[in-house]
Design a protein around this nucleic acid. Sequence first.
RNA 1: GGGUGCAUAGCUCAGCGGUAGAGCACUCGCCUUACAAGCGAGGGGUCACUGGUUCGAUCCCAGUUGCGCCCACCA
Length: 912
Amino acid sequence: MEARRYELWESAGLFGADPADVSASAPAFSMVIPPPNVTGSLHMGHALDHTLMDALARRRRMQGYTTLWLPGTDHAGIATQNVVERELAASGLSRHDLGREKFVERVWQWKAESGGKILGQMRRLGDSVDWSRERFTMDEGLSRAVQTIFKRLFDDGLIYRAERIINWCPRCLTALSDIEVDHSDDDGELVSIRYGDGADSIVVATTRVETMLGDTAVAVHPDDPRYSHLVGRQLDLPLAGRRIPVVADPHVDPEFGTGAVKVTPAHDPDDFEIGQRHGLPSAVIMDERGVITAHGPFLGLDRFEARPAVLAALREQGRIVAERRPYRHAVGHCGRCGTTVEPRLSLQWFVKVGPLAKAAGDAVRDGRVRIHPGEMAARYFDWVDDMHDWCISRQLWWGHRIPVWYGPDGEISCAGPDDEPPAGEGWTQDPDVLDTWFSSALWPFSTLGWPDDTADLRAFYPTSVLVTGYDILFFWVARMMMFGLYAMADQGPDAAVPFRHVALHGLVRDAYGKKMSKSRGNTVDPLDWIDRFGADATRFTLARGSSPGGDVAISEDWVAGARNFCNKLWNATRFALLNGAGAGPGQGGRDRAAQAGLAGLPGPAAALPVLAAALPGPAAALPVPDRWILSRLAAVTAETDALLERFEFAKACDALYHFAWDEFCDWYLELAKPALAKPALAGPGEPGAAATRSVLGFVLDRLLRLLHPVMPFVTDELWTALTGGETVLAAAWPGRRADGGGSGPDSLAAFADPAAEAEIGALMRLVTEVRRFRSDQGLRPAQPVPAVLAGIEATPLAAHQARIRALLRLTGPAADFAPTASVQAEGVTVQLDTAATIDVAAERRRLEKDLAAARAEVDSAERKLASQSFIERAPAAVVAKNAGRLAAARAEITRITGRLSGLPPPPSTPAP
RNA sequence: GGGUGCAUAGCUCAGCGGUAGAGCACUCGCCUUACAAGCGAGGGGUCACUGGUUCGAUCCCAGUUGCGCCCACCA
């Protein structure tokens, strides 16, 4: 019924948000979706992310908030370009064969074809997003936002162009920002090389031998006595036929290696700094693909071919003093393709992050933005407080082109979206595009119409909550903070923040806590689960595993458990409807008269205010089990409400699960059964079946509302059937409301009933104790047993005799009652007449029947096995299965014979 | 290299100064008229190790060991 439900919701416009609706009693609640790659598809990480967001949105809607959840997708520059390039490569083409314009056209075309798949998948998950507001980071409006903020930052001197050592991917052929580089400890070798000769020689150590071709100095620490005599002298650089100076620089650590460092300003960020300080030249010896360009025997070699070649040449000259191998050290890799990053001297655009990052840190420090869990804030500060300038230019074609034009005489002109770009002889636009995260950083306000002053922006900015994985705290969250605070600064410091709360969740892992990866083969496709177990079960599994900032382990066993929970709700609702607890069409009719006669206790649709009004104080007029379940409902409502408010999804789900299954189904429904069937079982002074019917319907109604945010489909299906209402989406949330209220006629607090909880608690303990006895004694659950509840009159359970007997299948003592055993609990001594109740003859007959079946099974299995031993290549699995059957059947025979011999001998005199 | 987190039942995890909990898995019994994808009853843990604080420590402190994560320009 999921697809049908979703269509219903969508066509009824239940997800739309109108800024005009915002008012004091319907305040705004807004979220933007972390835009997935437009050409991507839904994976478990999205499913988790979206489940949590959807739960928040649905609850807020029920609370009465004007709720906007805005969907959209990201153009994902480098990732998307790579995919399309791979596609081209399959037909032997590169992007250069097409040319820029054609290539970009091709990407758009690809986006049109395969893009948006994930949007359809979001419907399967049940995402209650406002589809009318779907955005794409390359939309015209969002591109305007990009250009606007670029221009503003440029004019403020916060964007600059400089020649720097940047991270370069020789495969993607583009610059990368620091966080697009992944470091790992790789095996390399540390080689010590002698530069110069005789007394004028110095030994340097390096892991990158080939870069020595570009050395322009050797650096030592200024206070190092070993080398002070060499500072300022020139040394011979082996293989290169050049002489390079020895310089003194405090950056050098005299403790490390020989205390002398070779300096390659064009190929190492540290060395670049040293070179700047000492005015050293930069010798570029490699091109953008990592191929050696230095003249000599190594010209044309790839960097990894050049390394052994240079090493061999040095060894031949006797320059190698020592080699240490393997030598583990950190190496950077391209976050997108894994290629070893090459530090490269190049001219790029940067964002000067100093003031922006400071503001981003302060917003969290002074509580304008709260990060959940709070511990994650430390990580955020570490990063934001010590951030390098952000390299934003990418040598790609797919993305927002840098809005800067270069004039014939070296002029630089930055154009805003409404400016006429400089034209004429010799003017050209910068060929590069912006880092994908540049446009993502604007997402919370660019999607609402910024830079225009729109109603959406006024109503829904700042957004309320940002839900995302902690893995993109730096990539995305920190940058939205920087740009949001900067772009919206005119709103004042409080209203400029992009969001009030950041709710972080973890990664989805497998059942053993291992990261999901294709190579490990442990990935799970959420759509496969949705097909097989339902979206509700999938969502519940994810939400139940998600504590703030914590990773979520999932497995098929667990989603099956969640599926079972859905079924449990389904069956409980069926029970309620069968017993006339519904208010929908055709429900409650047969008992309408009885209900009318019971003042103020009609069906569940109107039950809440009526129930509350009819009950002076704590629901005293109701049967105790009903008072108990209402009290429990009040408690779990308050608990769930508070937990969801704190983003404690796992605990909220757990609380609801236990309430629904253990308390409502396992106890309350069992207690309600006799009450519904036999009103005479009611305690003294208690109203009968009609009251229980109302309470049953009422509690189920509230339970379905509480579960709806996490399990939207099944709860709506059941709730509409139960109540006859339009949709549970529009029903009021049982906890606190948008105006902060939670008291008044709608409050459940009045149902808190410690006396009822104590009585039912005692009843539960007593019943469990007797059940244990029955189980130990092998008394079948359905077997009635005559019993006396001695001493019960003096306990709080006095009024519950009939209920206890019904739950335990205890009958009244017959004339010949002769107790054979007793169980004591809660001040009651339950005396049972077991001997008289076991129908020994019937039991013997039953056991003998089972025994015959088991013997036949043994026979059959033995025959099967015997025949299989003659069949050549009988499948091992089949043989094992039959062997298992045989063993199980033999064990069964042992068990049954044991039971038979344990049966009491047939009574000498027939029972009366 | 710098941070930081975690070690509790077979697995994944809650708990947190005072008789150890959940889900799944496991054992036994049961097709008891909402549900066998279910019902009832069970078994299972020197709460990593060593010290300390305390009347009392799984919980607080210190150290040890083993994992994990984040950051990182150490040749």
